[in-house]
Design a protein around this nucleic acid. Structure first.
Length: 585
DNA sequence: GCCGTTTTCGGCCCGACTGTTTTCAGTCG
């Protein structure tokens, strides 16, 4: 069993223990262990073999024993026994807003609810409202929650949240009542998928701002409405929360509401270690009479007072950033202004919406120096993939356009998004690929397969001296399809070895390679290309979010090909693959 | 269930809001 499958089981164990009314810190211990596994960079098998599992924080003897059993046998008696103790359908009930472990347990013991269907039935019969601690309103809320389970998938791509948040944020910023307003939470941290939008503002008149907020355009329903905190449901189906604080509290609240929860817990612990108490309103001395908060004008000052260098929001996931901030070892993250061009773009020749020329002009408008064209190859029939003849014609056309832009510090690179066949060979013969400047090799079909087979397939493809970039390495589609099972460490090592660039595909539903892998990719010496996989001129903008994901992966300009100047990229692509320099040239 | 140079036992981040209660538990982030 792999680490992600084990993480799912640990999470489930946590949920069941929670429902059984176990000590909540025991529950948290399992949830933390699951999260640690999901983010684990090192190979789990190796850690187990070298008996180093205990070195991981939060992995005590009991959890170690369970992880090892699951890894080696895929079975765990403790888990099987636990599953017998409650109906499995109860876990689903925890996804309904207003229902936590205590209430779910009551529904089960008092009303024999064992599934969402059962719960709907009991609500419709009015039985839930009669239960102690419940009431009419709770029953209504539950019914509504059940309806939403079906309507909304509960998670959204980052860009959907960003677009939903903008009109409200603009309204708040324009209001004379509001001093400052910002989006916090996972949207600010640039998580690839988000659950809700957290807005924060500084004001002296919170109640008036709350009224403004709940009446904002796009608000479909008011969920909560308090003096300093309100929640609404937007037309997009995304829940949006707003918190109001005053000017002095703002930096503390911004840090608090940016999270992540795990990052905050570490910050609070650091405060305690220094005889302080940290919350969303300030940083307070604990000893003696109640005192005023220490003053901080910016988040930077707050971090400094906790003995840390400033940590960019994207890095606040408790995956090593605190230790790095202690010693000043944080990387200087890539920014949008560092980007000088991109690769992997489609045109009307295959399944794109805009012409070669329009794509080039759009890239120039962004101030870029180059754009790599990579239309589909012939096997991608549905995407109108190019055959050899059409590809050669496109190369010629690109040459003509480059003549027109000569001397203007801009050019197109001729390329192809060539399909990787099931055996790892490519959709075009080498003599055709050799005529291209930038070849993106992507797997589009046969994503099932077992890990060893998939890994061999990808490694064979990138070992081809004509392949410049490995496109969307896993082929995952966020919120709908798992990616290929791959031995990622082996793929990344092979990429570094063969001098193949690895793509960070920033289509909102892909964000592939995942940010969690980039730290180890960089360690292996891999060079990244942030590519939009644009099928229209407007989609070139996807690189903005790609930069956000790159920042989550701790990437610096030196580790990204498309921060290089045109002349440097030309030199890189012209050189024989084995002679290319992946590190800073 | 995990953790520890103030601790091997007794902690484990902290506050707003709701709905149900007559002062607070549960949920949420």
């Amino acid at each position: 069993m792999d680490k992600n499958e084990i993480a799912v089981i640990l999470n489930e164990i946590g949920a069941i223990l929670d429902l059984l009314g176990e000590n909540r810190f025991k529950v948290i211990a399992y949830q933390n262990a699951a999260r640690t596994l999901e983010n684990l960079q090192e190979d789990l098998g190796q850690l187990i073999q070298q008996e180093r599992l205990g070195e991981i924080r939060g992995f005590g003897p009991h959890i170690q024993e369970k992880v090892v059993a699951l890894y080696k046998t895929g079975k765990l008696r403790y888990y099987d026994e636990l599953k017998k103790s409650i109906p499995v359908g109860l876990i689903d009930l925890l996804r309904i807003p207003s229902l936590g472990p205590k209430k779910v347990r009551m529904l089960w013991t008092d009303l024999q609810v064992e599934s969402v269907e059962d719960l709907k039935d009991r609500c419709e019969k009015g039985l839930v409202a009669k239960l102690g601690g419940f009431g009419e309103k709770t029953q209504e809320k539950i019914l509504e929650g059940i309806g939403n389970l079906a309507t909304y998938r509960g998670y959204f791509f980052w860009i959907e949240a960003w677009n939903s948040a903008q009109p409200i944020l603009e309204l708040l910023k324009k209001s004379p009542l509001v001093d400052k307003a910002e989006v916090g939470g996972s949207v600010r941290r640039k998580k690839e998928v988000i659950r809700d939008i957290d807005l924060l503002c500084s004001t002296e008149k919170p109640e008036a701002v709350m009224k403004l907020f709940i009446g904002s355009p796009g608000v479909q329903k008011v969920i909560n409405h308090g003096e300093t905190k309100s929640s609404v449901m937007l037309g997009s189906g995304i829940q949006c929360d707003l918190r109001c604080v005053n000017k002095d509290q703002y930096p503390f609240a911004l840090t608090y509401f940016t999270g992540s929860k795990e990052h905050n817990i570490v910050l609070r612990q650091r405060a305690i270690d220094r005889g302080l108490k940290l919350n969303e309103y300030g940083l307070f001395p604990v000893k003696g009479a109640p005192q005023k908060s220490l003053k901080c004008n910016e988040e930077e000052e707050l971090y400094r007072k906790l003995g840390l260098h400033y940590i960019e929001p994207e890095m606040r996931e408790d995956t090593g950033e605190i230790a790095a901030a202690e010693t000043g070892a944080l990387p200087h993250l890539v920014a949008w202004k560092d980007i000088r061009g991109t690769f992997h773009c489609h045109t009307t020749a295959s399944d794109g919406a805009d012409t070669l020329e329009a794509m080039g002009e759009a890239a120039r408008k962004l101030g870029w120096e180059y754009l790599g064209i990579a239309d589909h190859s012939k096997s991608s029939v549905i995407a109108n993939g190019l055959d050899e003849k059409r590809l050669l014609a496109q190369i010629k056309q690109i040459g003509e356009l480059n003549q027109r832009w000569k001397g203007q510090n801009f050019r197109l690179f001729a390329g192809s998004e060539v399909d990787v066949m099931i055996n790892g060979s490519l959709d075009f013969p080498d003599e055709i690929l050799a005529q291209l400047e930038c070849v993106v090799a992507s797997v589009h079909s046969g994503l099932g397969g077992d890990e060893a087979k998939n890994t061999a397939r990808v490694i064979k493809a990138i070992s081809n001296p004509c392949v410049t970039i490995l496109g969307h390495p896993t082929g995952r589609l966020l919120l709908s399809r798992e990616g290929m099972k791959l031995d990622m460490n082996a793929v990344l090592e092979a990429a570094a070895e063969t001098k193949t660039v690895v793509e960070l595909n920033c289509t909102p539903s892909r964000m592939d390679l995942d940010w969690r892998h980039w730290k180890s990719a960089t360690r292996a010496g891999v060079l990244c290309a942030i590519n939009p996989d644009a099928h229209a001129t407007a989609e070139l903008e996807q690189v903005r979010m790609g930069v956000g994901i790159a920042r989550k992966g701790w990437l610096t300009p030196a580790t990204i090909l498309n921060t290089r100047k045109l002349a440097e990229v030309e030199k890189f692509l012209r050189a024989p693959k084995s002679k290319r320099i992946l590190g800073k040239p």
